[in-house]
């Protein structure tokens, strides 16, 4: 069986779902962050796959590069915020950081 677009899309879908599960089920903020990275990678796989099977369109690659750039920036800022949260709460559990609710 020739490896086609659909194969990559299925891989991407599964990776995306794993990332989503990670985000939703874990308390630890860094785990959530890792889930997020998985989702971004899933999206990137989609971009590149469509780029290839769309006639080697380079625009898909560019989009993927910008996603990576954003991921890097996001990881830096998110970790900085986590450090602050940790200094304040002495933990980084998502479900306990809900002071705004009161």
């Amino acid at each position: 069986m020739e490896i086609g677009l659909t194969h990559y899309l299925v891989i991407s879908a599964l990776l995306f779902t794993l990332g989503l599960f990670g985000i939703v089920s874990r308390k630890h903020s860094i785990m959530v962050l890792m889930g997020l990275e998985l989702i971004l990678n899933a999206a990137n796989i989609n971009f590149i796959a469509f780029a290839k099977f769309g006639g080697m369109n380079i625009d898909g690659h560019i989009a993927a590069i910008f996603v990576i750039i954003l991921a890097a920036a996001e990881a830096a800022v998110a970790l900085a915020i986590l450090l602050n949260i940790y200094q304040h709460f002495r933990h980084v559990n998502m479900d306990e950081v809900d002071s705004l609710k009161e």
């Binding site: 903020s29 860094i30 990275e37 290839k52 993927a64 990576i68 991921a71 890097a72 830096a76 970790l79």
Partner: peptide, 30 residues
Amino acid sequence: LQADFLAITQIMIYIGGILVLIIFGVMLTT
């Protein structure tokens, strides 16, 4: 998928950068 530049970028930025950052985050907050 014939995306050679992106493959290299993936390894350098994700593995070399973001992942190291995440591991630092784990160590600093846990």
